[in-house]
Each structure stands twice: as structure tokens, then as C-alpha cells.
Design a protein around this nucleic acid. Structure first.
Lengths: 212, 212
DNA sequence: TGCGCATTGTGTACAATGTCCACATTGCCG
DNA sequence: CGGCAATGTGGACATTGTACACAATGCGCA
């Protein structure tokens, strides 16, 4: 029974794609429990492999966490792209750009509330975060940040935003949205009713439009 | 040598104020290393006491962390109060209120960059954060959040802010400032030069003033 | 004054975790 | 087909949070 045993082979010595399996398990853990829940031993346990096996694919528990973070960021980017795609096409380019920014903000906030664990992981420091570097992009190949930048560029192009206000604008928009997201899931606004949270989001986006 | 030994008595059986000593040591650790650096055993080690001694004052490592977080929040509030106090008195009440808001935002951002560890700890979740509840206030008895609220109230009173825009305004302001702070110390804006960070802060505050 | 008891700190112990090292099992490539 | 790099296993160790039983201490009451 060293090689083949009845119908069942020795399922997994060569797992095939352990690296990804580990990341997937990590995502599960992070989903409810945040970054700290990504315990190396538990991850490998779920995949049915010995703890040290992880070290063939990640230098560190931290490296694994980084990979999970990238995956979480990718999911966020994907959610934002989806929201963008569902947008009805407007005639007015300025209005269209504004609508896109609202859509991005909305999906960002929604993601944070629907998947707080993933969201926290996506923006946790741990070591030396690489929020933008590697493959944190969505299916469209753009990161969340880049999606926002594009919308802002279009806003300028449509003439709705003076060019001298453009530089740094994404920092303002992102700051506001990210800040609210954090306050909602970790800060004093935690535990707000969904309706109230939604209202806060709407007010925030109004302020953002005025402030850009 | 059970009781008295030479000149030195058995220095610390009754430590006197262990609870606070632990919090203080926790603050040191959090300062460079963030919340995860608050390791119960290391904290007690620094105070020169056995690990379990901590359990006479805190139910949990988490309870200790909560206390440290409160202390960090208090330091933030104190920094903001100081900045407010240093403000020259303006005649125009509207201008004064605006200046106060800027001062609050400035000190908030400055604190985050000067003490990222404390800042991160102050807003880390861990369990069930109590950013506002307990004694997270500064010397003046107001939390950071309340300081902001007061300034906004004055802005309304001075007629510079329509009353119907008041509700929820602090969420917008705080979101924007907090978001930038986080992006600066953890996010993609991490490692920006101080000058650039300052500039981003200025732009942000301009946008906030417009957006309120 | 002196004694008893609640408070506060100690000692020992245990399970869990991250990571190191040496070894085993593969599959692929020459 | 034989060896080698890649991948997974086993066992070990220091560190951590925490539980339980015990010791020292000092305050309140006799």
C-alpha cells in the first residue's frame, strides 16, 4: 500500500497547487477573524498538510499573509469593477465621471461592511505593506486606486474639474472613503445600523463632490 | 534573609501601582511596534514582575491592550488640545471655528506621523473597541471626537455652516482626516517625504473646508 | 496589640504557535 | 534509468497566553 491503495491513491504528496490552496485557506480564516486569524498551522491544517510544507512556498508567516492581503485587495478591486460595469451609460461625460466616482465609493464602503475581515486584512500593515505593487488588481488589471484615478482624469477632461485641482485629488477622495470605512467597522461608528451607515455614506459622498 | 537583606529591602512585593506601570510599559512597546508588540510577558518583564501578576489587574492580554489603547487615545486628545490652545484668537467667529478645525486636523495628522505606533494602537480593533467610551479624553475632559464636534457647532452658530448640513458633518471631517492618516502610515502613501505629506494634508484640509 | 482575611505577587504547568533542521518522497531531465 | 531539484514529513525548541495552587503582605477589627 505504498503506492496505490484500493481505489484511493495517496491523494496528496504532490499537492499540485499548494501555494494557492494555502492562500485560499488563508482567505477563509481572514474572512472572519481578520489578519490575526491567519495562523500558519491552522492554514496548513485546513489544507491537510504539515505546517512546514508552507515554508516551501512562503518564506514566512508574513509572506503568506502578504499573499492573502493581495488576494483580498484583488477581491476589492473586482467588486469595484463590477459596480462600475453595472453603471448605466450617461450622455453627459461630467455626470458620468461623477457617477463613476460615487459608484466606486459605494462599492468600497459596501465591501468594507460586507467583508470586514477581508477589508482589514487588505489594509493591515504587518511589515511593509504593498497595497499597490504586485498583483492587487482586479480582472480588468487595474487596482482600486487606479480606477479612482481614471475617473478623476475623466472629470478633468469633461471640464467639470479645474486642472489645478486635479493633483492629489485621489488622496482626498480615497482618504474620505477609506476613513469612513474604517470608522464604520472599527471606530466609533461601529455598530451603526445598516440604514444609518448608508445614510452616512451618502452624506459623505455629497461632501466629497463638493470638496473635490 | 527572608525579610530584610542588607540595606535593600525586598523592593517590590507590593509594587504600589502595578496597573499603571504595566500600562506605561505597554505604551513603550506600542510606540515602536504597534499593538502586536504589546506582549504580556514582555510587559511584565519590563516592570520586573512575573507574568501572572498582570492578571490581578487585567482579565486578559486584551484588557491590558484596551487600557493601553485608552492611554494612546488620551495622548492624541491631549495633543489636539495643546494645538487648540496655541491658536491665536480671531475676531471673526466663523474664521475662528474654521481655524480650529484646521488645527485639529493638523495635530491629528501630525500625531499619526510622529507616533504611528500609538496611533495604530489607538484605533486597532482587537476585540470590541471603545474609542469613545471610557477615559479616552485629554486633560480638558473631551475626546478627540468631541473637540471636533464643538468646533463644528461653533461653525453653525457663527452662521458659516447651514444647520441642515451640520448633522453628520463630523463624520465627514473625521473620515477624511483619519483616512489620510492611515494611508500615510500604512497605505500607499507610506514613505512620502514629510514635505509631501504636509502638502497632501493642506490640500486635504482645503477640500474638507469646501466639502463640509 | 495582634490576628484573620482579602489583595497582590509567585511558581509550576500546559497547550498552541512560528520556525529550524534533518530526512523522505516524488517527478523530471539528461 | 539514474540522479537531482522540488516538495512534503517528522521532530524539536523557544516563546506566548493563561490556568491553578501557593506565599507574602498589610488592613480592619477583636
Amino acid at each position: 500500500m505504498t503506492s496505490r491503495a484500493g481505489a484511493r491513491k495517496r491523494d496528496t504528496y504532490r499537492h499540485g497547487d499548494l501555494r494557492n490552496a494555502l492562500i485560499q485557506a488563508g482567505l477563509e480564516l481572514v474572512r472572519d477573524g481578520g489578519p490575526d486569524a491567519v495562523v500558519l498551522r491552522e492554514v496548513t491544517r485546513r489544507v491537510g498538510v504539515v505546517p512546514n510544507a508552507a515554508y516551501r512556498h512562503f518564506a514566512d508567516r508574513n509572506a503568506l499573509l502578504r499573499a492573502v492581503r493581495q488576494a483580498a485587495l484583488a477581491q476589492l478591486a473586482a467588486a469595484m469593477e463590477t459596480e462600475l460595469a453595472a453603471l448605466p451609460s450617461a450622455d453627459d461625460p461630467a455626470e458620468s465621471a461623477r457617477a463613476r466616482i460615487r459608484a466606486l465609493a459605494t462599492s468600497y464602503l459596501r465591501f468594507a461592511q460586507a467583508e470586514p475581515g477581508l477589508f482589514r486584512a487588505a489594509f493591515s500593515t504587518s511589515d511593509m505593506a504593498d497595497t499597490e505593487n504586485a498583483s492587487a488588481d482586479g480582472p480588468g488589471g487595474l487596482t482600486a486606486f487606479q480606477l479612482l484615478g481614471a475617473a478623476l482624469d475623466d472629470l478633468v477632461e469633461s471640464g467639470a474639474l479645474p486642472l489645478d485641482r486635479r493633483p492629489g485629488a485621489e488622496y482626498f477622495v480615497w482618504s474620505a472613503v477609506h476613513g469612513l470605512a474604517v470608522l464604520l467597522i472599527d471606530g466609533p461608528l461601529r455598530g451603526l445600523l445598516p440604514v444609518q451607515a448608508h445614510e452616512a455614506g451618502q452624506r459623505l459622498m455629497d461632501s466629497i463632490e463638493r470638496g473635490i
